[in-house]
Design a protein around this nucleic acid. Sequence first.
DNA 1: CAAATATAATAGTAATACTATTAATTTATG
DNA 2: CATAAATTAATAGTATTACTATTATATTTG
Lengths: 223, 223
Amino acid sequence: MKKLEIHIKIDSILYTKNPESSDLGRNIISNSIKMIDNMGFESFTFKKLGVTIGSNESSIYRYFSSKHTLLVYLISWYWSWIEYKLVFATANINSPKEKLTKAIKVLTDTITEDSSYSYINEVILHRIIIAESAKAYHTKDIDAENEKGFYKTYKKVVQRVSDMVIEVNPDFEYPHMLISTVIEGSHHQRHFSKHLPSLTDVTKGKSNIVDFYTQLVLKTIDS
Amino acid sequence: MKKLEIHIKIDSILYTKNPESSDLGRNIISNSIKMIDNMGFESFTFKKLGVTIGSNESSIYRYFSSKHTLLVYLISWYWSWIEYKLVFATANINSPKEKLTKAIKVLTDTITEDSSYSYINEVILHRIIIAESAKAYHTKDIDAENEKGFYKTYKKVVQRVSDMVIEVNPDFEYPHMLISTVIEGSHHQRHFSKHLPSLTDVTKGKSNIVDFYTQLVLKTIDS
DNA sequence: CAAATATAATAGTAATACTATTAATTTATG
DNA sequence: CATAAATTAATAGTATTACTATTATATTTG
């Protein structure tokens, strides 16, 4: 069966020229994802990207004003995609608890399959989110960027799942804290399990992370 | 009453020359803390530090081989200090639950007072931990650095509090995940409450963060 | 007081994260 | 189909960074 071709629209504040609008733009996106994953965000440069895509550094600057904005673009795309997955996973489910459980799975699970309809490899992008996204909002410019709407899609996801928490327990006081803790926490756990395993209790094969955060949420909001 | 003068010993892998051993070294530490807090880790350079302390860039390199190792040194100092606070806060308390509660407070609370015995301002250092520490372990070199023992003090703290979790509930399967989630989570919440408040439920004046994580831990490990 | 050590001063390097200019190529439209 | 407009490539250049290396001058210590 053919996959549903969703289209994720990205706010124009996140680019100078829309990368979806040309081959070069799409090449910038798909190859920057691969390269950031391979060499890490610090080592990644527009010059190196230009070499691998057979294009010039200055041409890339016509799409993104800096490598930081490119990272923010990727992160924003990721959260829009997660929101789409959330909507899909929770559609037509009446039980608030079941809905929330499904949502937590979407937020905390691994991504195993690239949807292949687009030039964006979600499996690799997920690794970038885990390894690099903290760098995006740990800058001195965060307030200015937030005002421009750079983190809107992330905030939307947190809001959406916080609403599900409230559906389960309307008296729970800290839904946003809980959900942002789960999101950031699960990313940390995946990072730690790879590099600082003594900070986790991840055992091979088992998807402990999903279990752990599901239990954590359900027990915490239990009244 | 005079404050207890504790001494925090830092492993020699974390410096080239021990900064505690000279005025210049102590100046490097105390001023780098102030400067990183003021301008952010990216904008901070050894050249700028040299200018403010009236010393030469190359002299600073005799203490730390890079600004990254300096950051790791500061983080390591912070976790040793937290471990000391943990031991102190939980001494002579018999109830496992009370002990754990005190420990969570140490991990998640604000730092309001600089202990003033040393050249290290803990209030400012805490801000650096919140804003910059993620950058230390989100590098391509993390595995090599971890092997050298760069993150030992952090891991010790997680282990110590995980043990307290097990004291309360010996059957709980994910103590390390829980505690590292609490630590990273509380730092995120403090960062978000300042810059992306819609991701939190922090209301002015109240120490919601301590409350939230205390509830979260106790409920999650409740059998 | 001499030797060892620490620090300062100076210079230099490769790379980064851009900006600016001009030229070549492609695409749109009248 | 021709011309303008837009896009991309090529080249060059800049200030800064994160260092390293060398030499000179202080300072400490045995």
